[in-house]
Amino acid sequence: MAQNLQAVGSVTPSQPQSQLDADAGQAYFDHVMAEDSRIEPRDWMPDAYRRTLVRQISQHAHSEIIGMQPEANWISRAPSLKRKAILMAKVQDEAGHGLYLYSAAETLGTSRDEMMGQLVAGKARYSSIFNYPTVTWADMGAIGWMVDGAAICNQVPLCRASYGPYGRAMVRVCKEESFHQRQGFEILLELANGNPAQKQMAQDAVNRWYAPSLMMFGPPDDDSPNSKQSMAWNIKRFSNDELRSRFVGMMAEQVRVLGLSLPDPEVRFNEDTKTWEHGPLDWEEFKQVLAGRGPCNAQRLERRRQAHDDGGWVREAATAYAAKMAAKNEAAA
């Protein structure tokens, strides 16, 4: 295979030129879905499938990148050097996760620059939970245990997403996330077993992050118009409410090990439906925060924008240097 792609493409036109080709593409796509197999970047795929994936993967990537900020907020004040190292590694991992995911989204034809542009322009969404402030050290524990815990519940099924690059990125992310959740749990455990002020700090954090972390799974199923299509496309494997219920169950068990409590008296296991139930959530607040009225929306975006703008001259310098060296090597050759 010494031909380049263009040549290959011209031998066997890969662009459906007619309705017939589109029908063949659709048929093949449907076959892949029915087989629960994987779609790869150069396969034919429906416009809407591609758009959905770009939106979901880029939002996911943005969430990782914006999600660095609330935790980076405590790197400089971590109360022990061991915790400082762990937190630094964790926040750094999140940058890595964002990069894996941007790469996956790029295979769909949208460049990272473009996605980043949409983010800093305030046109892209990210997980709204990161618009809440981290006000105490215990928030590092709650984020690790609850927010990362919820993320893992969401992400493990995504390892089997029908789009190959997304699934592969998620495999890598999930492997790394498991340390994130455990370190969060340990932070809370240490606090819960510490002095009364520490224990109170831990309980406060659990109280504050509980509802937002449950809302990370998205709106209730009857108010989630896109879910059905995503499930039909084998991108999403479980509904929002299914995942949320599973998550509540895990929290309810684990919180006892911590010696803390969930701020929701209605959490219970329903023997009839065999699912975990929880009290009502304030979806109005969720929508407000999503719409940009959370405590930290403006701050988070400004910080990202500033890092991006401040780095402009550095990126330009590296690009210019690469061009100069390439020209030099060419001249020498």
């Binding site: 750094q92 940058a95 890595g96 990069l99 780095g311 550095v314």
Partner: peptide, 19 residues
Amino acid sequence: LGHWISRAPELEEDVALGN
């Protein structure tokens, strides 16, 4: 250096400085 994490000129450099 820890201060650079989430503020570096490019995401790859966030990771590099973090290391």
